[in-house]
Design a protein around this nucleic acid. Sequence first.
DNA 1: AATGAATGAGACTTCATTCAT
DNA 2: GATGAATGAAGTCTCATTCAT
Lengths: 213, 213, 213, 213
Amino acid sequence: MNTPSSPRWRRRKSARPDEIRDAALELFVERGFAATRMDDVAARAGVSKGTVYLYFETKEALLRSVVEDLVEPALARAESRAASHGGSSAELLRELIRMWWHTVSGSRLSGLPKLMVSEARNFPELARYFAEHVVRRTRALFEGVIRRGVERGEFSPRLDVEAGARLAMAPLVYASIWQHSLACCGDEDFDPERFVTAHLELFIAGITCKEAK
Amino acid sequence: MNTPSSPRWRRRKSARPDEIRDAALELFVERGFAATRMDDVAARAGVSKGTVYLYFETKEALLRSVVEDLVEPALARAESRAASHGGSSAELLRELIRMWWHTVSGSRLSGLPKLMVSEARNFPELARYFAEHVVRRTRALFEGVIRRGVERGEFSPRLDVEAGARLAMAPLVYASIWQHSLACCGDEDFDPERFVTAHLELFIAGITCKEAK
Amino acid sequence: MNTPSSPRWRRRKSARPDEIRDAALELFVERGFAATRMDDVAARAGVSKGTVYLYFETKEALLRSVVEDLVEPALARAESRAASHGGSSAELLRELIRMWWHTVSGSRLSGLPKLMVSEARNFPELARYFAEHVVRRTRALFEGVIRRGVERGEFSPRLDVEAGARLAMAPLVYASIWQHSLACCGDEDFDPERFVTAHLELFIAGITCKEAK
Amino acid sequence: MNTPSSPRWRRRKSARPDEIRDAALELFVERGFAATRMDDVAARAGVSKGTVYLYFETKEALLRSVVEDLVEPALARAESRAASHGGSSAELLRELIRMWWHTVSGSRLSGLPKLMVSEARNFPELARYFAEHVVRRTRALFEGVIRRGVERGEFSPRLDVEAGARLAMAPLVYASIWQHSLACCGDEDFDPERFVTAHLELFIAGITCKEAK
DNA sequence: AATGAATGAGACTTCATTCAT
DNA sequence: GATGAATGAAGTCTCATTCAT
């Protein structure tokens, strides 16, 4: 009876939690946690109010699941791809920035930075998780490349590696956040592609430039 | 203003709205608009719940007042100070970045970017106001300096002026936001002074560097 | 009944309702009707939630069935046993009290008094059923013995027969109720055997005592 | 302004919690805790839903307050009155039983035994409180009188003091419970006065009777 | 001007009941 | 017969807002 050949039913069943997570992510990013009603999450996921509670014990548990379960696989993929690159340090850095941007910008994850920034103080445990599992790990990737560049003499020897890694990412994070907030209401001129490209060039110019000061 | 003929209670009376605004700003930044209760605002301002409604019609009106009434005077001051500077374009830019940071970082305003990013989608009118009165005007200051530098041949002629202005500000905005979110919970290593200083040097190196690419 | 021609699954099938009733009785007695969830009944009966509804139309119907279907056979048995006793009225009364206690105390029925007391006001129809089919019939047994004792001069002639019957039973009912409530939480010293025995002796002493007042 | 001479307002304000407690007690006794809705409590107390939560943090806290705050003063009064009696032990016991009955039967407290019996298993902490502060203390009063009677030779020397005290109270407790349950629905013949009087006579006859067995 | 008790709409959550498999 | 995912009415509790004092 319950053969794997009855796919519609089976797939729907196991897909439910994902559909709910996706709906919740969209709404949490758009409105914030407190301003999102569980009814809206249910409606956007196409289920009834009660169904959400079949899969997630509380609204807060739903938030945790949204953050933790979406982030891990994406990050693991990114790290493995990052490890497989060769070339000059500048080239590598360029790749890393482009990869970050293309991985995050169009995907469901693009709203996570805004969400975490908005809710960090209200959910410190979750913020800690995010800081350690996402922020730190991502920064480690950038620090690795920058340190290599400094050690090989490709980048300025006076470069502060940690601050440099943060600075490489800051405009990317800023762009993600901006796209989900003011770029929707008021700053529609913001062109993230152009912004990220300019950052890429300017940042690499800055860290490779030998003449400066 | 503070003539001896205005007794203490009269001064207190007119100070009430400001005290409430300050309390509201702190809480809105920390918890977000929806998660902040009017009771908490009143308690932090040291007044009773009803008093808040003497000065602000609704919770949303309080938010609007927080944003609009705090921003205008600070920005006007900044613009006049910016206009009075001389020196090379790099020097001017350095000044501008430092000024932004020192004006914003320690003041009550430092939380505004986080607040606006979090609430923009829920209050599009307010976001539009903020984008036009704060973001655009501030960026105009940076664009002015950068355009001058390009025109005078001090900065790379291939520099995208608008993107450049955004990039000059992005790490500053990022630092403000970070300080009120993840730097409190999980990313305590973040050192904004060091970060902003590194940005200053790297950014100016990038835009003045003639050899790049 | 248990002919070899009734295969195991057939017996199980007809046993289901009883298993559910037993589970429901336990939980209704322990937690009360409103605080008991159908899920818990199903879980304790070892069936799925839906199965309960195969046999009982609603939660209230399950309650009715628990009370009505458990009580009738037990009571019929008791009446027939009571009728077959001989001896002095005191002896008979002693027997009746002991029988009541031993029939009720260890059995599934021991919780019924607590259940009915708790739910009588919420289910007046059921309470009426219980009062007429259980309380009144049981009391009639006691009244019969006591009236016989008074008529034969074995008991005090001034004895109020109806009140006497109620008083013979009151400590028994009290003990049943207590065992399922406060004797579980707070009054663990309560020793029902000792209590019932003391009642037996004292009550018979009271009604047979000629010297009193 | 807030002189004690504006009594209506002041009295109402401080009377609110008591009015709510009384309403809650009535409903909890009648329907049980789980089947009582906070809206109903509010309606019966003549206030709005939210007002109940001004004075009681949760529904459970309201239950605790109902039990703990109503019981203590009544019990203290009873103990002091009990201490001031003289006369023979039988007379004293008679007084105690009558006092218990008249204190409890007509008052707001008369439903407490039913409430506690019904909810003990769901609120073990509360049950423990009730068992220790009410049941044990009340029984101690009875044990004192009975022990005195045995020691003075007024009561049968073979009397089990603890069981005797419980037996003195059991019909009283039973009558309280019955009045709030089956005496309302099905056993309307129950006449508590007659029942308690019969108990009084029979119990004293039993314990003073020298001839028995 | 200031208070804080009171309100009630609305949010989160539970659970009796249904029904496709 | 049996299951358990799904539903949505209904309950608990919160909080923006009002208003008598």
